[in-house]
Simulated scan of single mutants.
Amino acid sequence: MLVKVQKWGNSQGIRLSKEVLAEANILVGDELEIISTKDQLVIKPVRKIRGKYQLQDLVSQIPQDYKPQEEDWGSAVGLEAW
């Protein structure tokens, strides 16, 4: 597949067809890693588990003195089973 680098505002970019994205298992909004060498670009998706956050990053933000406690959410409103 041949594409051209095009100017969009102050940036440049390329468009990838729906078929190319499907073949590479890339969805709109996915993060991509771009590796450049002297005469080549490699574009590959960054695979994260269950969305855009990594569990290790979230856990590392918990303060050391945090003490978990039970929360009272009140009585059931719908068909919840408590």
Score class of each variant (00 low, 15 high):
V20N: 06
W8Q: 08
Q64F: 07
V5H: 01
V42D: 08
L32T: 14
L55H: 07
Q12R: 12
G13I: 01
E19S: 07
Q12N: 11
T37R: 15
T37N: 12
K18A: 13
G78D: 01
R47I: 10
Q64K: 13
Y66S: 02
P68C: 09
L27Y: 09
G78M: 08
E33F: 08
S60H: 11
P45R: 14
K52I: 10
I26H: 01
I43N: 02
V77F: 00
I14V: 15
W82R: 01
Y53Q: 15
L58M: 15
S17N: 05
K44M: 13
L16P: 00
V20P: 00
M1F: 00
I35Q: 12
V3R: 00
I62G: 03
L21M: 13
M1W: 00
Y66D: 03
D65H: 02
L27M: 13
W73A: 01
E33D: 12
V59Q: 09
Q56S: 09
Q12Y: 09
G13Y: 03
L41I: 15
Q6A: 07
Q64M: 08
G74E: 03
D65I: 09
M1T: 09
Q40L: 10
W82G: 00
D57M: 08
Y53H: 10
E31N: 12
V59L: 12
K38V: 13
V59H: 07
M1A: 02
S17D: 04
G78T: 09
E80D: 14
D39S: 05
V28G: 04
S75A: 05
Y66M: 06
I62A: 03
S75G: 04
Q64Y: 04
L79V: 01
Q61A: 14
K44R: 15
P68T: 08
E70G: 03
V3P: 03
L41Y: 10
V77T: 04
D39L: 06
I35C: 07
Y66W: 15
L21S: 04
I35E: 12
K4Q: 02
